[in-house]
Amino acid sequence: MSNNNKNSKWNPSLTQEQLLVLRDKYTERPHTGAYLYNKEEGIYHCANCNSPLYKSDTKFESGCGWPSFYEEIPNSLKYNLDSSQGMERVEICCKNCDGHLGHVFKGEGWDKQLGLPKDIRHCVNSASLKFKHK
């Protein structure tokens, strides 16, 4: 984790769990997030800075325990190589505030399994999101 991220301005209304996820790059426990089963229409925003990140129509059920999306809103994310747990993964962060969102995985077969337009899964912590209805 960069010192830059630690020294960023954080929304004072964030909960302790949201700070742990967004600022300190923790992962919420699987199957506990507020938005895991949300099927309402709207936009998912960064819980810290309110930047729009995902449209609800790109969300899908992957069974992984966290909200999954196959596509972000253009120019909303920053991608970083994460080798923190003995494997290489791609971390996704809010491009505006650098808040940690989760990780992205490719080549799992979602395009064939669910007929999605892309074979990609953005595995996102609910704690890093704020949902706004259409």
Rank of each mutant, 00 (worst) to 15 (best):
N80D: 13
N80A: 04
N38K: 14
A34V: 09
C94I: 09
F131T: 01
K118T: 00
H122L: 04
P12Y: 00
Q85M: 14
L19W: 00
L116W: 11
S62H: 06
Q16T: 14
N11L: 03
S126N: 02
S56T: 07
Y26L: 00
L77N: 05
L114G: 04
W66N: 03
G107F: 03
V124K: 03
L53C: 12
E88D: 11
K106Y: 15
T27E: 08
G99Y: 02
C93G: 10
C123G: 03
C94K: 06
K39D: 09
W110K: 07
L101H: 06
E71S: 13
V21P: 07
T58K: 10
R121W: 00
K39R: 13
G102A: 11
G65I: 03
G102P: 07
V90W: 02
K130H: 07
N38A: 07
Y35M: 10
P12N: 09
P117W: 05
S51A: 14
L53F: 09
S51W: 01
P74M: 09
S68V: 07
I73L: 08
D98Y: 05
K106F: 15
K39M: 05
E41S: 14
M1S: 13
N38E: 12
C94H: 03
R89P: 06
I73F: 07
P12D: 05
M1T: 13
L36C: 10
S83N: 14
C64S: 15
T15F: 01
G115Y: 04
H100N: 11
I43M: 08
D98W: 00
M1D: 11
D119Q: 01
N7D: 13
Y54V: 10
D111C: 04
C123I: 04
